[in-house]
Design a binder for these strands. Sequence first.
DNA 1: TTATATTAATTGATGGGTCAACTATTGAGC
DNA 2: GCTCAATAGTTGACCCATCAATTAATATAA
Lengths: 142, 142
Amino acid sequence: MTDSNKQEDQIFDLIYRLNLQLSPKFERCTGISPSRLSILHQLFEVDEVSQTSLQKEVNIDSAAITRHLKQLEASGMVQRRNDPTDNRFTLVRLTDQGRSEIAAYKKEKQQFVAQLLQDFNEQERSDFHDMLRRMLDNLQHY
Amino acid sequence: MTDSNKQEDQIFDLIYRLNLQLSPKFERCTGISPSRLSILHQLFEVDEVSQTSLQKEVNIDSAAITRHLKQLEASGMVQRRNDPTDNRFTLVRLTDQGRSEIAAYKKEKQQFVAQLLQDFNEQERSDFHDMLRRMLDNLQHY
DNA sequence: TTATATTAATTGATGGGTCAACTATTGAGC
DNA sequence: GCTCAATAGTTGACCCATCAATTAATATAA
């Protein structure tokens, strides 16, 4: 195993450890899972969308979307109705309650993320963003 | 929301998308999950270790370790026995079969990781490693 | 020594993700 | 108009992680 391979391996291990720790800590901190908050965030930006377009934005399976929405609906954050122009679609929107509750979550998330990047300067943030973007692109080939 | 906050948010979203896609794609590519390969990798380095020290290296729950080892044992990759000097411990080691099979997995992983970092030059790899390290450290505060 | 704390491992409950199979609706081509 | 393909959503089976509770063994301290 070459030195270069070792370094690649180390980078992968760091990413994977981040991978393991990020979601649980995010949720303990903010009170909501990253994917679920992402769903709410998307809904906050638009008025009403289908589950499919939600699924594309949030990057999880449509089955996972269905289950999240089922719980969000049960907790009164979200409403769903059939699209009258095409009955295959289900249209989703935030309730007023949902729209007001989301603010607190977004604030918690902001603090959490700020902590993660606390010692990164402007240049580093920009570089980091760029490298993550490229890595994600490389991952798309699979 | 300030521009700075937006950038932090974007970085988080990239990491989280990486987070979501990494494990499934790794497993499709290599034929084994990252954590399970990590367990095998640790066992490859040493002769025989307790589950607890394995757990610390791999950074997953001891319950998860138990379940992985149960399956690895069933598939003949791994052997377990009680520590004769302290019966609380279970000592784990690779079988000969396990030791020979692991080589193929490591090779697959190496290719996968090389692809992820294909367009990163030396400096970028070093910087990236450094920033991931710092981010992981920041995460430890939670 | 005997009661109490600590430690290792296991198990069950839960949550979040994937994939594959299925239903229902709509679109397209003959 | 009818058949066949494509699309949206749901459900079930599975995998992998966490946490909490339990069991068993050992260490500690009165």
